[in-house]
Nucleic acid binder design. Sequence first.
DNA 1: ACTAATTTGTAAACGGCCATGACGAAATAG
DNA 2: CTATTTCGTCATGGCCGTTTACAAATTAGT
Lengths: 402, 402
Amino acid sequence: MTAPPHEARPPRAGRALPDTQQGMRRRNLARVMHAVSAEGSLSRAAVASRIGLTRAAVSTLVDELIRWGLLEELGPERPGRVGRPGSALAVSGRGPAGIGAEIGVDHLAVCAVDLRGEVRARAVRHGANRGRAPQVVIEELTALVSRVVAEAESAELWPAGLAVAVPGLVARDARTVVRAPNLDWHDTDLGSLLPGGWPLAVDNEANFGALAELWLGAGTPPDFLHVSAEIGIGAAVVVDGRLLRGTRGFAGELGHVPVRPDGPACACGGRGCLEQYAGEEAVLRAAGLEPREDLVDLLAERAEAGDERVRAALRDAGTALGIALTGAVNLLDPETVVLGGALAGLSPWLLPALEAELTGRTAGAACPVAVSGLGPQGPLLGAAHSVVRAVLDDPAVVAERS
Amino acid sequence: MTAPPHEARPPRAGRALPDTQQGMRRRNLARVMHAVSAEGSLSRAAVASRIGLTRAAVSTLVDELIRWGLLEELGPERPGRVGRPGSALAVSGRGPAGIGAEIGVDHLAVCAVDLRGEVRARAVRHGANRGRAPQVVIEELTALVSRVVAEAESAELWPAGLAVAVPGLVARDARTVVRAPNLDWHDTDLGSLLPGGWPLAVDNEANFGALAELWLGAGTPPDFLHVSAEIGIGAAVVVDGRLLRGTRGFAGELGHVPVRPDGPACACGGRGCLEQYAGEEAVLRAAGLEPREDLVDLLAERAEAGDERVRAALRDAGTALGIALTGAVNLLDPETVVLGGALAGLSPWLLPALEAELTGRTAGAACPVAVSGLGPQGPLLGAAHSVVRAVLDDPAVVAERS
DNA sequence: ACTAATTTGTAAACGGCCATGACGAAATAG
DNA sequence: CTATTTCGTCATGGCCGTTTACAAATTAGT
């Protein structure tokens, strides 16, 4: 577990606030929100000492945040120490909520998360989406969103934004799906298909999964490499608490890192890419299984049961992952590598070979490998929380929106 | 970690100015300096419109910067347009200077750069440093620094900091050389050997080379991957205009990215690392040459002359580089890849094979490869400029220092 | 039980910083 | 020669956090 930060500092948001007196005030509002959010309940004086402002300044900031409905006063604290007890502040359970959505290969999911970080509404629809037209899928997703939003509104929440996790490459405009091979989508502008009216952010599921790990994972450091696999293999690079997106938004394509330069040809144009060894198709073939919806469970079950062919397939996938990760670790020097998504569930059979490669190839300076506790829930939670974080990072936006 | 705030603090520690009114003023002072520095000469009104402040505010900022000796008034501008002509401001050619130093495998170099970015003093000593004790080498380096500082001081410059480029891995404290295989140095604390009194920053030569490319290179974008090779192969990742250093400061170890997982064993513990194919030793062996000091010139000369064995060696090195870079590009999605250091001089024979691999393996989404115009001068210039940038990024420090 | 000490939250005065608006100065346009 | 435009500066005002002071609420000590 990482030591509690001496100061609850909001990670520098995507779009920095202007460097003016008003921008300073907005950043201080954010610092108050983050401090209270991190501790759950805090007095004004405690916030002041934590973020380095005076009690008087914090008082005016808190007044404003209460007026906007982002904080609420819980009443006097239980007096344990000497002196007048403070009045406990907490992040409001009403007000803005983050709507997260996930487009999986064989399911759709939507949830609403309040400012406290609690999931307040959910909706899921199972069924394969592969090859279906984006319009149809988005229509169904929109219906789920409507249901979740209605449920949230009945709990006095209002949607502050919609974030959609997609199994594919997303352009930096956070609207266009450039390529989602497992859905057969290409250059699809989700911005025009999804309901307008709220801020919208579309991103790779690996990215949202990594953010969930950063924000919700136990002891996840601000510098790590998050690897996830559904059908393709994606990774997300988090540096200093921020996602590394790349010029075109395509960073993290671990699946196409060359593992054996003379290996089998890949659809990407290369040879011997990681996906040729650790991708779903490759593992299925090596395990001698047919494609199914609940593939991960099946693989885990067979491996558990002692199916030697399945175990060998997973072992080989782990080896390939280890080779690719050796390159990534040498290049990025992350604090840890986190296995998420489907890899989390299969980690008992992947990890030994993976770690053998990784530590064997990096003598001494090995990078620890951890398994995500969020597993397949990561992307959806990360999406919803990304909206919540946007509000915490700049609480003043809600004032403009009323 | 108890570090005195004044001494041994890395100039570009990345630590942002405090978020207060005074911090805001300091940032605005920096914006004025950057604006004037970028244009060479600018009136107060032009600065104001460029950085988004009012003329009145800029006036007071400029007054202060002139009082500190960082800006100087050149007098009225040539009136070409309507209205009263402005008074041209320029960055002062006197005052603080950045001292850059480079410890190469077969040379030492020091230079002084003024705030305008011009090199005002140099000193070089040739001779192999491999295997010599750090104390002895640093003693010689210190002598060179003294000469350069004396020359700078006679030109009314005073050293604002010392930055040292080293061919090896440097810890994040910017003082300790963890491993420099080509010097045979291990866990050497340069901070205690180098002259005190100034802020000190030790860093990898690849990092400083990348910064030089960022700051001085023609048209270098803020997101790129800089590859350099002296004996080992180092890379530096620049994201959004900032170096990615990694948790331990070891990011960019491209030389130990696996290229052929079953290839020859490497000192790092791995097999088939890039260095086994494109490192100096490997290229020498393939080319059938003996180690020499001016190896790069020799290789270029032979290749130019048509020596087929040398050309094949460089071609193979390019291929291996291309494979390793394919992985890096997939992971980081940089805007360009820049070849610097010794690779720049050999690029005519490396590039064809390198680009063939890179574009062939990344179908369509290829990443352009550029060659550094700075070549072997990069690290030294980057080091000196890093000190200058630190002053431009926070001009108020010079006021504290007098 | 009563006083002293400590801590919290708020209010008023203060100082730093930039914006606004006005003014003189120095050029061009007609 | 006048009107116009632009530059640099000054006085004023608003925003924002700090300083200082004070009442309220609790514990510690007698």
